[in-house]
Write a protein that binds this DNA or RNA. Structure first.
Length: 493
RNA sequence: GCCAAGGUGGCAGAGUCCGGCCGAACGCGGCGGCCUGCAGAGCCGCAUAUCGCCGGUUCAAAUCCGGCCCUUGGCUCCA
């Protein structure tokens, strides 16, 4: 089944055809490491991660590049704050390390490369030189600007008319530009005191940081914001890539400018498919730590765990905006619990049955096939993760029903169900199934079994109050006990 | 002002590109039943949707066309 994707460039859903058969060059617009990542950033990561995983599942060889913007005035403004670092690169390194930790926590697949702006200044300068040589950029007081009037397709991605674009830059910067919509490729000098004061979260006193600067043919200065992605995308992927992913807020001006400078420099299409993820919002109120509705990724991981977060993100299509709320997280938790319990139930049933059993359940086997094809259909349809998740949950119902009603278990049917959940739910959706394995927790298992044995004795003696007390006590420490015909089962936290 | 997205049951959220399988998915919540000492989990069933409004096209529209109302986001800090 061919994959179709919604391309912001054309505004339409298109059949996905990579430049090179069987290979996908994927660039994800990464984070400016001036602070800890929050749940909005993680939404992009998880959707991009699932796209990556699905493409690999479909047999593509995926090269995934995700940058860290480590040169930015907001980073420079935090130099000297608490123990973040004494230079721009130290502050950036601090937040980069924290972000990588967040990504690991979310069980994201590793990107092929995580390039940094500070390590690509030569490539950036080279790209700017090409643009100047070709007449698309001009130097002004040591700074270099892209001349939007020279690039006919400017505004195509975001449907902007050059005439409509109002100048809103700083007055002194505007005077350096020929057209208000021109944007900086290179800025002379260090970060301005104005910018530092605007973004600083602490008092710098008299000695303001200026950020790092680099030598260039035009001045000692700093690269503009947009040029980095062009340079890094071309350096680590190619002049034309397949998919460029980013948040919707980057369509203009960031991605518009990337297209302009890249295509002006190479004369080739920069990215075939532009996929933009909808933004995360909070209900009725702005995100704010003081209101308690703002979550950094690390705080959310602590609170909900990676699987619940994924269930949350995968309950909406990547292109839609999504509202964060505690209710939404509660529902996400329920969705994840249902899937995981279904998986556990299936595994336990499978363990209890002999592989040579002759029993079959066509309803179950059909349900497995349906789940696979429905998942495939949904993901091929512009990565419709919610429908794909629905397919998995329907399989869960089918398995539960089989376990609930069948007089004898269907070994092959259960086996296929487990494989399906592991492949689609685990490999593609990135959920992590399975309890902590024996070895590090075996003593815990033994102790829980011991308590349950005592409880069973109390139950048999009719001392239900005592039995319930034990169950409640276990529940208090996170051990969930469930009674069944075959005796009690439990789940560790 | 310019650009874009969206208005579907109590909530949330698919479906709209390619009209009929949508008498509207999955899930949460509600109600009833099975199971159970009880609870939870699980299973079965029920209820709640004029698919923003008006008009049009069609044998057939949540889906196409026209008009209108409303909401939200972006417009050089942004994922």
């Amino acid at each position: 089944m061919t994959l179709s994707v919604t391309n912001t460039l054309t505004g339409a859903r298109e059949a996905f055809e990579p430049v090179t058969d069987d290979a996908v060059l994927l660039y994800v617009c990464g984070l400016t490491v001036s602070d800890y990542a929050h749940l909005g950033h993680a939404r992009v990561w998880v959707h991009a991660d699932v796209m990556h995983r699905w493409l690999e599942h479909e047999g593509y060889d995926v090269t995934h590049v995700e940058n860290f913007t480590d040169v930015n005035e907001k980073i420079a403004a935090r130099v000297g704050e608490d123990d973040l670092g004494e230079t721009e690169s130290e502050v950036a390194a601090h937040f980069t390390a924290a972000t990588i930790e967040d990504m690991r926590g979310l069980n994201l697949m590793r990107a092929s490369v995580y390039p940094r702006v500070s390590e690509h200044v030569p490539e950036i300068i080279e790209l700017i030189e090409t643009l100047v040589d070709r007449g698309y950029a001009y130097e002004s007081n040591g700074s270099v600007y892209f001349d939007v009037t020279q690039f006919d397709a400017y505004g195509d991605l975001s449907n902007q008319q050059i005439e409509e674009l109002e100048a809103q830059g700083e007055p002194d910067e505007r005077s350096e530009k020929r057209h208000p919509a021109d944007f900086a490729l290179w800025k002379a000098g260090g970060v301005s005191p104005t910018a530092i004061r605007e973004h600083a979260k602490h008092d710098h006193g008299d000695e303001l940081p200026t950020g790092e600067t680099w030598e260039s043919p035009w001045s000692e200065g700093r690269p503009g914001w947009h040029i980095e992605c062009s340079a890094m995308s071309m350096t680590h992927l190619d002049e034309t890539i397949d998919i460029h992913v980013g948040g919707h807020d980057l369509v203009f001006p960031h991605h518009e400018n990337e297209i302009a400078q890249s295509e002006a420099a190479t004369g080739k299409q920069f990215a075939k498919y532009w996929l933009h993820t909808g933004l995360l919002e909070t209900k009725g109120e702005k995100m704010s730590s003081s209101l308690g509705n703002f979550f950094t990724v690390s705080a959310a991981l602590e609170e909900f765990g990676p699987n619940v977060l994924r269930a949350f993100y995968l309950s909406t299509e990547y292109g839609s905006k999504q509202t964060f709320s505690i209710d939404a997280m509660t529902e996400a938790e329920a969705r994840w619990n249902r899937l995981e319990r279904g998986y556990d139930t299936t595994c336990e049933a499978l363990d209890s049955v002999d592989a040579r059993t002759k029993a079959t359940d066509e309803t179950l086997r059909t349900a497995v096939k349906d789940a696979r094809s429905e998942f495939q259909r949904a993901m091929s349809d512009d990565f419709n993760v919610r429908e794909a998740m629905a397919a998995l949950l329907e399989l869960t119902t089918a398995v539960n029903r089989h376990v609930d009603e069948a007089t004898a278990y269907d070994y092959r049917g259960l086996k296929r169900a487990v494989e399906t959940i592991e492949t689609l739910g685990g490999d593609v959706f990135g959920f992590q199934f399975g309890r902590p394995t024996a070895g590090d927790v075996s003593i815990v298992d033994d102790l829980v079994e011991l308590v349950l044995t005592v409880r069973e004795q109390e139950r048999e003696a009719g001392n239900y109050d005592r039995a319930d007390e034990l169950r409640d006590s276990l529940s208090d420490i996170g051990v969930e006990v469930q009674d069944s015909d075959d005796g009690p089962t439990y789940r560790l936290p």
